[in-house]
Amino acid sequence: MLTIREEQMSALSQAMLKQFEDHLVIHLSNNFPDETREISEVELRALIQEGIEQAEQYQITLEDDVRRYLEFMVMYGHKFETNPDTAWASGILHAKELDGTAKMDLIDERELEMVRGLV
């Protein structure tokens, strides 16, 4: 039987987190070139790490949902839920009855309505 020690699990977790971070650096740079042009890779990694921690506080933990959360951070600022233009997101993020995916789905829907001029 294979036994994985706690130290090994921690190392695996760190490696997976680093791989996710690497993917996000590329994703955000490629998909948001105007927003990330003035940001060094070190600064972008710091933003990603901050975003992962913030997202977790809102029970947003699935990779796809965290990616969407970080996209909003890049588009609207690292505290987008307090930005006057997107402060509406705060209510969604603090909704205890919603899971992370539902929160990000609602934020995506609202943002799409804003872009279309429906709100």
Rank of each mutant, 00 (worst) to 15 (best):
M1W: 06
M1I: 13
L2G: 13
R5N: 12
Q8P: 00
M9G: 00
S10P: 04
A11N: 06
Q14N: 07
Q14C: 01
A15P: 00
A15W: 00
M16F: 09
F20Q: 04
H23P: 00
I26F: 05
H27V: 11
H27M: 08
L28G: 00
L28E: 00
S29L: 13
S29V: 04
N30G: 05
N30P: 03
N30C: 00
N31W: 04
P33W: 01
D34N: 12
E35A: 11
E38G: 02
E38N: 10
E38M: 09
E38T: 07
I39Q: 02
S40K: 01
V42E: 15
V42H: 10
E43G: 06
L44T: 01
L44N: 00
R45D: 11
R45I: 15
Q49G: 06
E50T: 13
E50C: 08
E50F: 15
G51L: 13
Q54D: 15
E56V: 06
Q57A: 12
Q59K: 14
I60V: 14
I60C: 05
E63D: 15
D64N: 10
D65F: 01
R67G: 01
R67Y: 09
R68C: 04
R68P: 01
R68N: 07
L70F: 06
F72Y: 05
F72N: 13
M73K: 15
V74G: 05
M75Q: 14
H78D: 14
W88V: 10
A89E: 00
I92P: 03
I92R: 10
L93Q: 07
L93I: 09
H94M: 15
G100H: 08
T101F: 11
T101E: 12
M104K: 07
D105T: 04
D105L: 13
D105H: 07
D108A: 11
R110K: 13
E111K: 14
E111H: 15
L112D: 02
L112P: 02
E113H: 14
E113G: 12
E113Y: 14
V115D: 03
G117E: 08
